[in-house]
Every structure is written in structure tokens, then in C-alpha cells.
Design a protein around this nucleic acid. Structure first.
Lengths: 200, 200
DNA sequence: ACCTGAACACCGTTCAAGT
DNA sequence: ACCTGAACACCGTTCAAGT
């Protein structure tokens, strides 16, 4: 048997990303260590350095993968409700909220500055921008059909994203008071948020 | 000299909080360690445990102090523009943004889940709620004068807070694209965000 | 009550070495 | 090219001891 057993299953890099996501979901951001990730993937604690420059690089890869999945979720919604802009907007926002609640710690890694100097990771920047472009498209369609105010679609997209993102962050941080949460379901709260910026 | 030299300057607890804030501003969230804080305050690395149960408790104290200062900023604005609800709303939002940009890492500690199980810290919860009550007051005045939509002031306050908070978080995370930032000053962006929910 | 120093388990990272 | 094991500096936390 010559070069069949190539040390590992052949794709340690992706195995490490996957292990990282699992540890994140189980132990949270503070429980994510390179050594634990390596151990979960069945390699020594220095093996990850063959594939990632440091811990930040692994976190960048996890975040980038998260953005890819988020894009998938959002573009599915866009396709599904292509004929109804308003529905598209609401369901995309709902998908965003669900994505965040589904794995809060991965969402925090993507959006809470756990990754420093994100500009050093071109793939991260690209995937993140791809998501913004998609949001912008949704917003433009809604501007055209009079659901959202006109004007710069960059700024309008920022508003729509911001109002949902802000809600999600406050939600994840437990900042939304009990009295508010008693007044409506999560879905209703999201729709209420969007209604604030919709004119039709 | 009997009990004059009481081991320390007498208020190590607050000295540690202050040292923590300074380290946070200089080295960021990931650079904040209990040992560094202790060293900066001039005590041994185990001395903090006389005043805080663990690192989380120190972080809770830093966050709580941050909320106190934020409340001060916001209530100053409220007092200053008491006669003009709309101005009060805009300037309060602007003060919020400035507070965040002034010390981004402290803001992240307060709002990005660095502190886990925040419900275990009653002072943190109280100060955080006090800030929400203030936002609610500002929103209610603006609802009464027709600047903001009517309805539940809890939900309306959540929208106003959310849209600004979301903007700030995206800003701090570097998620706002260059093309957007070229279109307007930070102040203009904040006002644009608010205009999305204002009806007058 | 407040602080110290030794000790322990854990961490990120480097490096020389092995296949 | 890919992985290991020893080593180093740093960390949070505990504990027995000192004033």
C-alpha cells in the first residue's frame, strides 16, 4: 500500500471547520479552542497549523462557511417568492432571524467581532459582500413596487438589514425585555420591525 | 502606623474596573485578562478574587458601569432638547453611535454576548433596563407629536433602538461597504436610518 | 477582610523531527 | 505535503498561608 493512507481522511481542513462548528454549537464562543477542534478531528493539537496560519484563520474559515450557508438560505427564499416582492422581503428577514437563532454562537462569530482584521481574509469579505448584494436586490425590487421608500438602494438596503440585524443582536444578547416578548411571537416582532420601514 | 496602610488604596474593586476599561480600550476584548488587570492595578494576580467571583463577574461590573455612563449620555441629551421631540430622538441616536465608536470594545462587551448568563447579574439587568425605559420615553414623546407611528411604545422603542443598534453593530464589524460609506457622513447615515421610521 | 505565592489544568504557538 | 511531541509563555482558578 503506497500512498493510500495519506495520514488522514484526506480533507483535514474541512474536517477541522466542521469540528469547529460543532464545538461552537455545543460549548459556545468561549469554549472554542484549537486544541479541542484538533482533538475532535482526531489529530494532534499542532496538526491544524498545516492548514491554518493560526486560530483566527480557522475562525475566518468557519465564518466564511457560515456566510455561504446564509446566502443559500436567503437565495432559496428569493427564488421561492419571486413573484411577490413584499413576501420576499418578509420571508428573507424571517430566514435571517432563523439562521441566527439556529446557531447563535456561529452567528456571533460572524457578526460580533470575534474575528479581528476580517479584511485580511478575502474569501470572508467576498461572501459577506455577496450577501449584501442579495439584500440590495430584494430591497430594489421592493422599492420598484412601492413597498419601500425610494432613494439610494445601498442606503435603503442598509436600513432594512440594520433593523433586522439590530433586532437579532438585541434578542441574542437577552436585551429584549420580558414585557415586549409577551406582546407578540418572534415572527410577529420581525414583521412589526419591517412594517416600520414599509410604506405599503 | 496602625491601620493606615490598608493593603491597597482602599478601593481595589473600582481600581480593577478602571484598569479593565483601559486594557479593553488598548488591547481589545481578546486582550482582556484578569492577570493583566490585576497587574495594572498593582496587585497579585489572585487579588481580584477578593472582589469578584470570577472573570465573568469583572466583565459584568465593567458592562454595568458602561450602561451607567450610556444612561448619563442619553439623559443629558434628553434634558438638552426637552422642547423638541424630533431633535431629541436624532441627538439621542447620535449620542448612542458616538458612545459605541468612542470605545468599540467596551460596547462589544456590553452588547455582543461576551458576558454570558447576564441574568445572573441583577445590577447589569437593572442598568440595561433603565436605558430601555429612557429610549421608550423618547419614543413616546415622538409618538405623541406625530413623528413616529403610534401603537405599543414597547415595540416602537424596540424598532428605534434596533435600527440604530443594527447600524452600529454592522459598522463596528466592518460590514458596511466602502461604497455606502462614500455616499454620506456617519451623521448623515444615522439620520437616514431614523428617517426610515419617521413619518413627519 | 484583604492579599500573596505555589500549584494545576488549559490554552495558542513555535520548532525540530519524523513519514 | 502532512503530522507528531516537546517546549514556552500565558491564562483562569483554587488553596493554604500570611496580615
Amino acid at each position: 500500500m503506497p500512498s493510500k493512507k495519506i495520514y488522514h481522511h484526506g480533507d483535514l481542513k474541512n474536517a477541522l471547520i466542521k469540528a469547529g462548528v460543532e464545538i461552537l454549537a455545543k460549548d459556545g464562543v468561549s469554549g472554542l479552542s484549537l486544541r479541542k477542534v484538533a482533538s475532535k478531528a482526531g489529530v494532534s493539537h499542532t496538526a491544524p497549523y498545516s492548514h491554518f496560519a493560526d486560530k483566527q484563520a480557522l475562525i475566518a474559515a468557519i465564518s466564511t462557511e457560515g456566510f455561504r450557508q446564509l446566502y443559500q438560505c436567503l437565495s432559496d427564499v428569493v427564488d421561492k417568492y419571486k413573484s411577490n416582492p413584499k413576501k420576499q422581503l418578509i420571508e428573507a428577514a424571517w430566514a435571517y432571524v432563523q439562521f441566527a437563532m439556529d446557531d447563535p454562537d456561529r452567528f456571533k462569530v460572524m457578526f460580533s467581532g470575534v474575528l479581528q482584521k476580517e479584511k485580511q481574509y478575502p474569501e470572508f469579505v467576498e461572501e459577506s459582500q455577496r450577501n449584501f448584494q442579495l439584500v440590495k436586490m430584494i430591497v430594489e425590487v421592493n422599492q420598484a413596487s412601492g413597498v419601500l421608500r425610494g432613494g439610494s438602494s445601498d442606503l435603503a438596503a442598509l436600513s432594512a438589514w440594520g433593523i433586522i440585524h439590530g433586532f437579532v443582536m438585541l434578542m441574542l444578547e437577552g436585551q429584549i425585555s420580558h414585557t415586549v416578548l409577551e406582546q407578540a411571537t418572534l415572527r410577529e416582532l420581525v414583521e412589526f420591525q419591517l412594517k416600520q420601514i414599509m410604506i405599503k
